[in-house]
């Protein structure tokens, strides 16, 4: 069963990378990158169970946090133009 799940995650990884490479707009690539982070967490969990070491699951939490930080940084870049902006106020233009 875990083997089938691993294969499914690998296939979805291939499709996601194809989208990230082709993606006409930047946002396609961004969503693909975010989903690849999720697929990496899934792969981590499934491989952990496949090799009989489900302790890896803790790492998945950290991966999820990192994924969030990356997406937040990109969104802040789009909103304010630079990451050193303190936020809170509206952009000037």
């Amino acid at each position: 069963m875990f083997t089938a799940a691993t294969l499914a995650v690998l296939v979805s990884l291939i499709l996601l990378v194809a989208r990230a490479l082709k993606g006409p707009t930047v946002f396609d690539r961004l969503v693909a990158a975010n989903a690849i982070g999720t697929a990496a967490i899934l792969l981590l969990a499934v491989v952990g169970f496949l090799t009989g070491r489900p302790e890896f699951l803790d790492l998945g939490i950290t991966y999820g946090l990192l994924n969030l930080i990356g997406t937040l940084a990109v969104l802040k870049y789009f909103r304010f133009g630079d990451l050193a902006h303190s936020g809170g106020e509206e952009p000037e233009d």
């Binding site: 990378v17 490479l21 993606g23 930047v26 961004l30 990158a33």
Partner: peptide
């Protein structure tokens, strides 16, 4: 796009 692909590369490498 290259920066986003760099992030993807890191997740795959991990």
């Amino acid at each position: 796009a290259v920066i986003i692909l760099g992030g993807i590369y890191s997740f795959l490498m991990a």
